[in-house]
Design a protein around this nucleic acid. Sequence first.
RNA 1: GGCGACGUGGCCGACUGGCUAGGCACGGGCCUGCAAAGCCCUUUAACCGAGUUCGAUUCUCGGCGUCGCCUCCA
Length: 451
Amino acid sequence: MFALYDTLTREVRPLAMREPGKLGMYLCGPTVYGPPHLGHGRATLVYDVLRRYLEWRGIEVRLVSNITDIDDKIIDRANRENRPWQDITHKCESVWFDAMGRLGVKRPTDIPHATDYVEQMVHMIGALVERSAAYTTSDGVYLSVESVPGYGALAHQSLDDMLAGGGDREVLGAQEKHHSADFALWKFSKPDEPSWPSPWGDGRPGWHSECVVMSLELLGEGFDLHCGGADLRFPHHENERAQAVALGKQFANHWMHNGFVVDPEGEKMSKSIGNVANLLDLLDNYDPRAYRMLLLQTHYRSPVKVGQDNIDASVQALTGLDSFAARSEGQTAAADADTLARFVQIMDNDLDTPNAMAHIFDTVRRANTAIDASETAAGALTAAVHEMCGALGLQLGSTGQVADDAQALAVALDAARAAKDFAKADALRAELQSLGYVVETTKAGTTLRHV
RNA sequence: GGCGACGUGGCCGACUGGCUAGGCACGGGCCUGCAAAGCCCUUUAACCGAGUUCGAUUCUCGGCGUCGCCUCCA
C-alpha cells in the first residue's frame, strides 16, 4: 500500500484512490513569464518520479498540470519590453517544455491554460458572490476568508496568528478589504491591459481561482492528490481550498508538497535574494540526469543544496551506474523478485527515494560481484537494477553514439594490445580519451562511452 | 511576535531506541602490460545540557545555532 505524507493531516497515510488503480493528481504548474529555475526543476522531477513509480506499479495516473498564462508578472514584462503578452507566454511555455523534456520529465496528461478557463472562473466567482463568500471593491472581487470555515488548515495557522506578524508587507487592495487576508478572485483591468468580461466589470482572474476550476472540472470533486512546492502551501493552496470550501465542494483528498532548493549557504533560492539558478544553465553544463540523481538521493520533503560539488558527485554516481550498464549489457533474465519487493517496500513508505537509491547501489554491487564470478544470479540482479532505475525515470547507459572512426580506433587498440605493442595501445587510448570517451579495456575488448 | 522545520563522519545525505544507510572524495589492497571499470579494506559520525530507558544520534524538556512560512515565489 503506497503511503504518502499529507500536509493537511501531517501524517504519512495511505494514498487513497476514488477509483482503485487510478490516480487523479493535480500539480500547480508554472506562471510563464521567465525561464525555469532550479525550483521548478525540482518540483517537476519529484512528481515525475512519483508518477513513473506509480505507473510502474500498474496504477493509471492522470496528471493535470496547469499553465498560468495570465498574471500581473506577465503583464509587467510585456509592458516593460513593449511586446504582446502572448508573445511572452508562448515563448516561455515552449522553453518550459523543452527544459522538462531534457530533464526527462514526462508530459502531463492534461495541460489546461488559465486563459482557456476564464469563463468557468467567472462562473465560479459568481457562485461565490451569490453565497456571500465574495464581495466587490473598486478594484476587484475578493474572497472573504472569514466566511470560510477552517481557513488556515493547510498553513496550520489561524487567521489571528497570521495577522500577528509580517505586517510590514504591502498588501494588495488593503484599503477596501474586509480582512487583510482576503484575496482577489477578479481584478479589474486598466486600459490596454488584457481583459475578459464579467458581471462586475472587465478584468482578469486572480491567481488562485484557475486551479480550483481546472482541477474540479478535469479531475472532479474530491480528487485524489494535489501537489506543488512547499512555498505554494500558503497562500496559494490555502486559497484554492478556501474557494472550494466556500463553494461547498469536496476538494483534494491528499496534499503533497516538495521541499525547497537552497543555495550552498543553505538559503532558499528566491528571486528577491537574487540567488536563483537558471535550470537551463544546469542543463547546458551537466548531464541532465545529474539533477534527477541528486534529487533521488534526497528525500522530497527535505531541502536540497544544489551546488557544483553536489552536482559533480551526482555525475560521478551516474558514471558508476553507466559503467555497470555497459558491462552488464549481455545479461538477460527476469528481474530478481526479492530485490524488487524490497524496492517496493522502501518506495511505498512516503516515496523514500534516498533509501531506494541505496538499495539500487547495493544491488549494483551484488550484480557486479556476480558478473565477476560468472554466477547465474547476475542476470536477475542486472534486470532488477534496470527495472528499478526505470521506475524512477533514471535512464542508464551512455548518451550519444560512438562515432565510427572512434570505434575503428578501439579495434586498433585491441589489435595493438593483442600484439603487445603497448606504446601504440597507450597512444590510441590517449587519443580516444582526448575525443571525450571513457575507455574501458577488458579481456573481452574495448568499450567506449561518452564522458 | 505567531507557526513550523532542521542541526549526522572530509563533503552531500538517509533510516533508526540496541544491529554497516548510500553517494562523492581521500588512502591501502586485489585485478590489469599500465590504466580505466569492478571487488575488498579504510576498525561507529550524530550542536550543548538535563531527563525517560537496561540502552538514545533516534523519545521528552531546556539552551544555542541555521532555515522556512506568516498575501500572489516550485
